[in-house]
Design a protein around this nucleic acid. Structure first.
Length: 780
DNA sequence: CCTGGATGGG
């Protein structure tokens, strides 16, 4: 209440509504408005419904000359100025329903020659005014008038109206009706009358209204009738000049007597279509008196959503034979129908279309319903949402309907499907929503359109050469149905399954495929799949619900992405290539390092470093106490002849003999060669290097040289003695033997001469070099 | 011969 109070004030101070879109539709519904707001002048559709507008002023809508649709329903409009719609000459749609208008004025509509749709229902007027309300509405096609207060209709009320698609009169409280009030009506396609009180209290009045209407309308619909008594036996009869072909009862309560009167009086009125919808029926089908009546005009019967309290007490309706024998279309749905006796089935001898959905039919009752010659013309049968369980039982029964082409068994619980018999004429079969998990044994081989949606089918491999359309949506299929078995399928619906992929190979087996719905599956968005579906499939067939329903399920990086927008990276898409490239990227540095190692003798350097570290770790004293040899001779194998023939003989035969360590002779077998070298050098006082070109080539010699070099620097003892067997120019020594170069620079070396006299001097010098230090140290 | 439905997350 506070809100309303506040906004009434706001509204009076020129409230503006700016909720307009690009098509000049302004939606000002439910804004607590109390007056017509200021709004875009070029507005073409204006919704002002569900506000608190009480009055429409003459000036409110004068500027809105382009207004075509004006919705003012559910306000509190009590009055409208006579000239209020004067400028709205292009207005086509005006809804003034559910307001509080007490009086209607013909002046409002004087200029609305384009108005097609007018709703004046649900106000407080008791009559349609003194003037001729609708006489200028030459374009009117839809009219709803009346309310719970309308008490009388008089002769000129509808003057000017001749053709309407729909005419709805709310006259539940109508008390008086002046004859020929509908005399201007020439062709009203559908006239809906809510005439509760007239039918209840004054059936003559009701009768006069219907009789007046009957020559001008093809479809009469009666609403809100309630358990009519049949005191007036003329009820529902129609005049000879009636145009009525269709009679509808809606939202009414009917009894046995109502139906009996209707059947009795209606059968000769030329009605071809009878509809009862959303009604309550209190009787038990006690219409025996119609037994010998016939009705050749009735060809369509619709009885839908009827609450029948005593449905289980219903009579066998075989006495209806003559009334239903010409019916071609029957919809008997949502009626608690549990049975149609064989006799009634037989009476429907011209029935082509029968809809029995939402009833209580069982396998057993089907047997009773389909007897010899029942429904002998039937081609279309709907048994959706009943209590059928076994295809094994009902398929042979239904195969007796000799012309059946179209059968809908959807939404039953069909568990027993191991064996079926079908009519050869059957072309359309609907088994959706039936909890089926296997079906292959139960599909008619010549079927053309098959709906198996909403089941639990995991595999589909049936051979169906005539099949044109297949709907297997919402099942558990992981693969497309075996393509080769379905050569004529044009339309395939397989959304909501467990498909993980679709490949060109699978799709191309359906040569005739034009339309495919494969959304809502669990696609693995591989590169092949993405390429195929995005670049080829979408261009070759009509893909329904594309792209919004095609979502990637995996891999994780693209989960929940729309297939159309999903792109995979180069590395994802070329796995072999990228693995190869990674391997190359990983192996190349290793190879390069390896190559560099080889080229620059890395391993040798590593070994050296390791050996050096080893040597450094050993305590010095232990070394001195373990002197065992006078000299360790380091030489190349190529120089072994000189070492063994000359050096060994000369030095070991002196007095006292010098003890030499030769790797050939003194190395401990089985020990690692580097350990041997280190140990031997450590056990020797001096290291004698026999230098030659060969020596430089041999790695071990380099190593020995280096180790001795460590000792040289570590212990400051002059252990290395160099003997040159042949001249080695310094340039020929490889770069990495910088130590040898240094050694040769810093130490004097002995050269092996060719001349024998000079050789004697050489030996002498060598012995001095080997022994000299011994004298200084005074050891041993 | 339109009047229909189910749907998952790891």
């Amino acid at each position: 209440m506070l809100g309303r109070g506040c906004c009434r004030l706001w509204g009076e101070s020129n409230y503006t509504c700016q909720r307009c879109d690009s098509s000049n539709f302004c939606n000002c519904s439910s804004m607590n408005l109390v007056t017509i707001p200021r709004v875009l002048e070029k507005v073409s559709r204006l919704n002002l419904s569900y506000n608190f507008i009480t009055h429409i002023k003459e000036t409110d809508l004068t500027k809105h000359i382009k207004l075509k649709v004006l919705m003012l329903q559910s306000n509190e409009i009590q009055s409208i100025d006579d000239q209020a719609f004067k400028s709205n000459v292009v207005l086509e749609y005006l809804d003034l329903s559910n307001n509080s208008l007490i009086q209607l004025s013909p002046a409002w509509f004087l200029h609305l020659s384009k108005l097609q749709h007018l709703d004046l229902s649900g106000n407080k007027y008791r009559n349609l005014g003194p003037g001729r309300l609708f006489s200028h509405l030459e374009s009117l096609r839809w009219l709803k008038v009346g309310n719970a207060f309308l008490s009388n209709l008089k002769k000129d009320d509808f003057e000017g109206i001749s053709h309407l698609d729909d005419f709805i009169l709310l006259g539940n409280k109508l008390e008086s009706y002046e004859d020929r009030s509908f005399s201007s009506f020439q062709n009203v396609s559908h006239a809906t009358m809510n005439l509760h009180d007239p039918f209840q209290k004054n059936q003559t009045l009701a009768q006069r209204i219907i009789w007046d209407l009957a020559p001008a309308t093809t479809h009469v619909e009666l609403r809100d009738l309630e358990y009519l008594s049949s005191s007036d036996t003329q009820l529902f009869s129609l005049p000879n000049n009636s145009s009525v072909k269709k009679y509808t009862f809606r939202n009414s309560s009917l009894s046995d007597s109502t139906i009996y009167v209707l059947l009795k009086n209606g059968r000769n009125s030329g009605i071809s279509e009878l509809v009862a919808e959303n009604c309550a029926f209190s009787g038990r089908g006690e219409w025996h008196k119609v037994k010998n009546m016939t009705c050749e005009s009735l060809i369509s019967l619709t009885i839908r959503h009827i609450s029948i309290k005593q449905f289980y007490l219903f009579f066998d309706l075989s006495f209806l034979h003559g009334l239903i024998s010409h019916v071609r279309t029957a919809r008997l749905t949502n009626l608690n129908l549990f049975m149609m006796p064989c006799g009634v089935s037989k009476s429907f001898q011209r029935l082509e279309y029968l809809d029995l959905r939402e009833n209580l039919l069982t396998d057993l009752m089907m047997k009773e319903m389909v007897c010899e010659n029942s429904w002998s013309s039937l081609t279309y049968l709907i048994l959706r949402k009943n209590k059928l369980h076994s295809l094994k039982k009902i398929s042979p029964i239904l195969s007796n309907i000799t012309h059946l082409m179209h059968l809908d068994l959807s939404q039953n619980t069909l568990s027993d499907v191991d064996f079926c018999v079908w009519s050869k004429t059957l072309q359309f079969l609907n088994l959706s929503g039936s909890q089926l998990s296997t079906i292959s044994q139960c599909i008619p081989p010549n079927i053309e359109v098959l709906d198996l949606s909403n089941n639990n089918i995991r595999t589909f491999t049936t051979h169906l050469p005539s099949l044109r359309e297949l709907n297997v949506s919402n099942n558990k299929l992981m693969y497309l149905p075996g393509g080769g078995y379905l050569p004529n399928v044009k339309i395939l619906m397989i959304s909501g399954n467990n498909l993980i992929s679709m490949s060109s190979d699978e799709i191309t087996t359906f040569d005739k495929l034009t339309t495919l719905d494969a959304g809502k599956n669990h696609y693995i968005c591989s590169c092949e799949f993405l390429t195929y579906i995005n670049k080829y499939l979408t261009h070759s067939i009509q893909l329904l619900n594309w792209p919004e329903n095609y979502i990637c399920d995996s891999p994780l990086v693209v989960k929940r992405m729309i297939v159309k927008n999903t792109k995979r990276s180069f590395f994802d898409c070329h796995t072999t290539l990228s693995v190869t490239l990674s391997c190359v990227a990983l192996c190349l540095p290793i190879a390069i390092v390896g190559l560099l190692c080889y080229k620059y003798h890395g391993i040798w350097y590593i070994q050296m470093t390791w050996a050096w570290l080893q040597a450094k770790r050993k305590p010095k004293k232990v070394r001195n106490n373990n002197i065992f040899y006078d000299a360790f001779v380091s030489y190349s194998e190529m120089d072994s002849e000189w070492v063994e023939n000359f050096l060994l003989r000369e030095l070991e035969n002196t007095h006292p003999p010098l003890i030499l360590c030769l790797h050939k002779r003194d190395f401990i077998p089985g020990k690692w060669i580097i350990d041997n070298i280190i140990e031997s050098i450590e056990k020797s006082r001096k290291t004698l290097f026999v230098l030659s070109q060969h020596f430089v080539q041999s790695e071990w010699c380099k190593y020995e040289l280096d180790y001795s070099h460590f000792r040289l620097f570590d212990e400051n003892n002059d252990t290395a003695i160099l003997v040159l067997l042949e001249p080695i120019p310094k340039e020929t020594i490889p770069q990495r033997f910088c130590k040898l170069r240094k050694l040769m620079n810093t130490k004097t070396y002995l050269e092996w001469p060719e001349d024998e006299v000079e050789q004697q001097i050489f030996w002498f010098n060598l012995k001095v070099a080997l022994k000299g230090e011994e004298n200084i140290r005074g050891h041993q």
